[in-house]
Design a protein around this nucleic acid. Structure first.
Lengths: 128, 128
DNA sequence: AGCCGGCACTTACTGTTCGTAAGTGCCATT
DNA sequence: AATGGCACTTACGAACAGTAAGTGCCGGCT
């Protein structure tokens, strides 16, 4: 599991690197949550909206379109009228999400330490 | 390595969940790159700026302050005048970065597929 | 001796993105 | 007949990111 940064993450430091953009797409606030939700099972648009508390329809639609364009998510129109759309992970998406889930659960585990650190820093340098 | 989403990623779907915010901090465009750079070795401010192509001083400073506050990065003033500041990963930060590096290298590996997918989608539904 | 560049930032301004709210057309339920 | 849900899209104000310039001090170059 050890990795050398130099080899693996070479061109991500370069300005014009396209993987930077792709990375932003999958790590975006709502994309991350949408992918996590789809890791459970396929969802309809409205189901995703309810699952991801606080997301607006605008941002959810936008995130899903980006994820579809980059090939992580598949969008299937099961019925035009009445509208019924199903979103599911592609094979690439299914291979991607374990990394995201690992990251999410890691950060969740460390939240006590994060809170402690914030409190300690804010003691010295109060916010605002 | 298999994970059930339901157990691990329970509260990240809730609106007021603080881990959402912490997650955004580490997955932010510049934070991600700063952490990756610091995975190699400690860096000075100017070294990071040069390493991370395209980052502005404003955003780098802001990202580093956020990462420091959340306890992923340690900031050490080695000399006030002339200014010499060293940034390094904390223990928590060092435990975090492997997840980020794994994600980055995964996405880099899949970039051909991403480009192919974009081209296919743009064929049907042209951008703009 | 005087000028230039680098150090690690901060501040002012501007453009892009985000979030909120409302609109769309159609159908099923009350 | 009116209401709500479906899957979005559009308009607009607010928040945020990016650009440029400023800060004070110092070392090196000419």
């Amino acid at each position: 599991m050890e990795q050398t940064v130099e080899e693996l993450v070479a061109d991500v430091f370069r300005r014009a690197c396209t993987s930077r953009e792709a990375l932003e797409h999958v790590t975006g606030k709502w994309s991350l949550l949408a992918l996590s939700a789809l890791a459970e099972s396929p969802h309809r648009f409205g189901e995703l909206r309810r699952r991801i508390e606080g997301v607006s329809e605008r941002m959810l639609a936008q995130s899903l379109q980006t994820l579809e364009r980059d090939g992580w998510v598949h969008r299937e129109v099961r019925s035009a009228i009445p509208p019924h759309v199903e979103y599911r992970l592609t094979e690439d998406g299914a291979a991607l999400v374990p990394h995201l889930l690992a990251l999410i659960s890691f950060v969740e585990d460390r939240m006590p330490a994060v809170h402690a650190s914030r409190a300690a820093v804010d003691e010295v340098r109060p916010p605002r």
